[in-house]
Every structure is written in structure tokens, then in C-alpha cells.
Design a protein around this nucleic acid. Structure first.
Lengths: 341, 341
DNA sequence: GGATTTTGTGTTATCGGTAACATACGATAG
DNA sequence: CTATCGTATGTTACCGATAACACAAAATCC
């Protein structure tokens, strides 16, 4: 089974391959009639252009590498969707990889993705290995970190402050009059998003002069509903008088709510519970769960549009100035933290 | 910024590029000493091989195209994860695209993916357009449909029968003694997975001689929790004496459970509710939701291993015989359908 | 009406590797 | 001691498209 290539069309049309190449792109000065004829022949022959070869020749691969910790997570799935929506119309194909929250896996994926000569890389903020950072820097392409504003960015940034968002939500719990507030999340001290949220929690609790010891560490991410449930049960056993809990994410918070339901503990009457991320479950849960609203779709869309901007502005000497784009976040107050009458 | 290429290494080592090419692969007969020297130089120079060029030359792109309806869905996210796990170690990069349940989008994605010359295509079963099917067939590469066993497969299959699984779950509801059973799902009559589940529901209900009219049609997919909630409320308004409901998926079923909670309707006492897919929410919900257990990870893993098998067995004349791999499914009975005392 | 520009198309080289074949040389066999 | 072979490496061609430049014919100018 021989694939049709440009030379076949050229032969059929009695022109050179260069003319075919020009006719099939918007580019180039071509007689309208010639173009129509070539397009018709291409269609009749069922020609499928070879973008690999085209990219190889024009030194533009048409790929953008994207790394997320997990696909099985609304956040990152939406980010990927936002990226695809923005990149696909521009002829860019997303190379998606998920790291399963493992640094070694991330480094591995970065390495193999770079072998595909992407035109840009999008990586979810994390405490990447030195080698991973070096590979990204030396690739000489735009690198965009998403989902946080790193203290030491590798390149461009599309994110927000997990720390201050978590602090804002904690502040809300404090203003409810709660004073024995716990936190459920990973214990990892490295610079991850979860750790930033824990820091924000501590910022707010300490500023209010409250007990800052009620940190319940789960296993490393991914932290799902059942982890949240188990953690909540354990936290209440250890500190039975806890009156509010901030969870590192919404699924985790839903697990905490379900633990209370099973134990007959009223939410929000006895314990207020808040999550992070505005997942669907936090809206549909009974009671609905207060959460920090972030749009993964927006992050993906912003990253995509930044990439398009950076790639089209490639006339500059040296690297483009570092861009930092902040996406909006907000606190959604719902039933799980409504004031006690 | 000039990238290092094989020629640079060859010059530094005083050998030809061909020797470098051989040394950096496992292939070829190379003096161990030469290989070590070349590998060291490559490392020192920070060489990153160009897999695009390599693939272009060897006529193997190293890509596998994967199409799923949605990423924001545990099912397909796990499938993608299973595929990546299986393909990445073999040096294959997944090109992932999501169709948002739209046929036109699927056709578009198939077209642009084929321009990347993938070595195989994985598509989620759906009622694809004629043109999409033709493109896939004419690509001359292995095509694998997943998540259903199609009546007219395009190529290979890794799936299960949505219809009989749904029938089995409906049968379970019938055996509970329920006789006014509803179904919540899409109305679309096309050959989608949801439509197959509805057929299975009807099979079982009719076989038992029960009322088969309680079909509540939601909007087209994606069908989320809130759609399930609204649909359940509307279904109960229309048919207040309904005593069991099968939902097209778990998130939808959770929405239905939450609708009952809000309305003060006991689950399972007054209405039993079952879902489909074994999402985390069905396990963590209170009550936990009975569901059809399917492993998206297994589907992805099976598809990946089938691809590797097909690609390595490319010595055959003509196409390889069509393979159909069935993955296990089972009924998980949980609180939402426990018998009334 | 000849010079200049514009338009449409062709030619050549090349992107970074690898397949296929060629070759030099030391080892082994007879 | 020569014929044969296997091993390690080099040479050449090419994968399918496009960039850069060349060039003839038609259009425009003064």
C-alpha cells in the first residue's frame, strides 16, 4: 500500500512538487486555476499530507509538549482540554504525558518529549529534578509552568498563588468563628501545589493566633475521596474537638464530608469543611462544599494563547521577556461552611 | 543556539555519523570501546536525539493516535493512562485528542492525526462519520476500537458489551423486587455507548414484562452530576411511583442520589439507584452506589499490548486477522440497591 | 516601445537521521 | 601461506516536504 505523496500529485497535474506544495498551503503566489486543479487532484487521490516531513523540512515540528501530574483529575483534564482547544486550530498537536506525581517520571517524559522537538513545553508546577530543569532550559524553546507562580520560574508562568488562595479560604473559616481548624493534605515539604496550600493555611491560622498543629498528613498524591474519608476519620479521632477542616482538594473534602455523614457528625453544624478546586462534586454534594474556584480550562486556554503569541513573535534577539499571567481565583461559599444559626 | 547533532558527535569522536547512529542504539555491531566513547561524548555534549528525523528516515513515526470523547472522565483518563504506561516503554508516544462527544470533531482529529503518520490508531467506539471510517481504513495501519464491541468493527476491538452489562444491572434491580424502573441517559439513538446501555436496560425490563416507558432523556453527553440531579427530579415528578433507576454513568447516578437527598426521598428504601462505570464517587457516596465495574486502565493496557503485538508481527501478507479482546466487567452491589428489610 | 516590475513556476539543496551496500582488516581454516 | 569469513566501520542514497534562489512570461511604467 503506497501512500500518495506530493510527487504523485505533481505528476498527475503536470507541475513540479514545489507548485503542489504551494497550492496546498495558503502561502505562495499561485494561479487560482492551477491551485484549484491541484486541490481537486489531491482530493481525488485521497492525499494526506505528511506533517512530519513538512515539519522536518521547515524546522517546525508542530508539537507542544504538555506534562500534567494526572489525567484522572478534572483540573488537569480541563487544562489539557483548554490547551487542545487553543492549539489545534493553529495546527499544533499536543503531546500529552502524565507523571503520576512522580519526579522521575516527569524527567523521563521531558526527555522523550524533547526528542520530538516540540516548539514549546508546558509543565505543571512541581519540584522538578535539576536535570529536568536543565533539559527544559537547554531546549531553547518557550517553557511555561502552570498551576502556580513559582519562586524561581523556569520560563513563563500561567498560574495563581495556591498559598494565598488557601489562606483566603482559611480566613473565611476563621471568620465563621471556628478556632480549632485542621488541614488535610500531603506531608511532602517539597515545593508542590499541595505544600503551598498547606503554607497558606498555616499563614492564616497563625496570623489569627490559632492552634496550628492540626495537620493531618495523607499519603502522597493522588489524594482521592477515600483518602479524604480515612484522613477525616483519623483527624477527628486525634483531635475530636476540631470545628473546621480545610482539605487540599475537593475530592478529598467530599471524602471528609462522607466520613462525617457516616459518623453522624453534622456538617457544617459541628464541623465546617472546605475544599479546593471547584470540582463538580463540591457543587453537587449535599451539603455543597465551599471551595476555591479555579478554572483549569482558563489556565489551559491562557497557556495556549501565550504559546501562540510567543511562537509568532520569534524575531527577537535572545529569549522573549518572561511573562507571568495570573488567572482569577475566588472563594465559593457553600453549605458546608454556612454559619451556625 | 545550535542543537547538537550526530555529525557533531561524529566529528568529536573521529568516526562517521553512521557509527554514532549505531552506537547510540542497541543495534548493530560496534566495538564496545567505540560505543562507550561515543556514548560518553554524546552525554558530555548534551546530545538529544531527534526522533522526528529518525522516524522520518526509518519510516516509523513512533506515534500512536488516541481518540477519547472526554478527558474529564475517569474512564477515559484511565484508558489514556493505561495506554501511556504500555506504549511509552516501547518508545511510542501517544497523540491524545478528545472529541467532546462530537462526531465532526472526531473526524477532524482523525484527519490531522493521520497527517502525523501514526503507527496505529485507537478510537473510542462511537457512531463515526463515513469519512472518518474511510480515513481510518485507508490509513493502512492497525485501528483499535475500544469501550464496546461494535456490530461492524473498523479493525480490532478491545471492549465489552455495554448492552449486556446494563441488562445485568437492570436484572439485579428486578430481582430486588422493583418493578417500576426508570432509566436516565442520553436520548440519542445513534450507536453510542449510552444508547447500548439503554438497550440493555430495555432488554431486561421487557424480558421481565415490566413497564418500559420510564426513560428520561438528558441532554447529549457529557452527562455530569448536575444533569443527573435535574433528570432525577424531573423523572420523579413525571413518574412519582418509580422505585428504581438505572443511570447511564456513576456521576449521573450520584446526581440522582443527591436529588433524592434534597427531596427527602430514601435511597434505597423508596428508590434504588444504580450507576455504571465504578467511579470513585460511587464507592464514597453515602449510600455507596451499585455500579457496573469496568477498568479503563485495563482497556488501555490491553489496547497498548495489542498494538505492540501487531506492530512487531508486521511480516504478514495483508492485514493481520481481526482481534477482539473482551475485558472483564462485573456488577458491584452496594448500599444504593440493598434490599429493603 | 524598451525597461522594470510582478507573477507564476521550476531547480537545487537540505532538514537529521537510517537502510543498504561497500570495504578494510584481523582471525580462522585448510 | 593463501582463501574465506566475520567484525567494525564507512559511503551513498533517500525518507517527503520546504526554503531559497532562479527564471521566463506577462503586466506595468515612463
Amino acid at each position: 500500500m503506497q501512500r500518495i505523496k506530493m510527487a504523485d500529485i505533481a505528476r498527475a497535474a503536470g507541475v513540479s512538487t514545489m507548485t503542489v506544495s504551494r497550492a496546498l498551503r495558503q502561502d505562495g503566489r499561485i494561479a487560482p486555476e492551477t491551485r484549484r486543479k491541484i486541490q481537486r487532484i489531491a482530493r481525488d487521490l485521497g492525499y494526506v499530507p505528511d506533517r512530519i516531513a513538512a515539519g522536518f523540512s521547515s524546522r517546525k515540528s508542530g508539537f507542544v509538549g504538555v506534562l500534567v501530574p494526572s489525567l484522572n483529575n478534572t483540573h488537569f483534564a480541563e487544562t489539557a482540554a483548554g490547551l487542545q482547544n487553543g492549539l489545534h486550530p493553529a495546527g499544533l498537536q499536543m503531546l500529552l504525558g502524565y507523571t503520576n506525581y512522580e519526579k522521575a517520571q516527569a524527567e523521563q517524559l521531558i526527555e522523550t518529549m524533547l526528542e520530538r522537538r516540540p516548539e514549546a513545553m508546558v509543565v505543571t508546577y512541581d519540584d522538578h529534578t535539576q536535570r529536568a530543569r536543565r533539559l527544559l532550559v537547554e531546549a531553547g524553546i518557550p517553557v511555561i509552568e502552570i498551576w502556580e507562580v513559582p519562586p524561581k520560574p523556569i520560563g513563563h508562568v500561567v498560574g495563581f498563588s495556591n498559598r494565598s488562595s488557601a489562606a483566603a479560604m482559611t480566613q473565611h473559616l476563621i471568620e465563621l468563628g471556628r478556632c480549632k481548624i485542621g488541614f488535610i493534605g500531603e506531608a511532602n515539604d517539597a515545593g508542590t501545589r499541595g505544600a503551598q496550600r498547606r503554607r497558606g493555611f498555616l499563614d492564616a491560622v497563625r496570623a489569627a493566633g490559632l492552634d496550628d498543629s492540626r495537620l493531618f498528613a495523607t499519603a502522597p498524591p493522588p489524594i482521592g475521596m477515600m483518602q479524604g474519608r480515612d484522613a477525616m476519620a483519623a483527624l477527628l479521632e486525634r483531635w475530636p474537638d476540631t470545628d473546621a477542616v480545610l482539605c487540599v482538594s475537593d475530592p478529598c473534602a467530599y471524602g471528609a464530608v462522607s466520613a462525617c455523614q457516616l459518623a453522624g457528625i453534622g456538617v457544617p453544624d459541628r464541623v465546617a469543611i472546605a475544599g479546593f478546586g471547584n470540582f463538580e462534586i463540591s457543587l453537587c454534594s449535599v451539603p455543597a462544599i465551599s471551595t476555591v474556584a479555579i478554572s483549569g480550562l482558563a489556565i489551559g486556554a491562557e497557556a495556549a494563547s501565550l504559546i501562540l503569541r510567543l511562537l509568532s513573535a520569534e524575531g527577537r534577539t535572545g529569549a522573549a521577556p518572561r511573562e507571568t499571567i495570573l488567572v482569577d481565583t475566588g472563594i465559593e461559599i457553600r453549605g458546608s461552611t454556612s454559619p451556625i444559626d
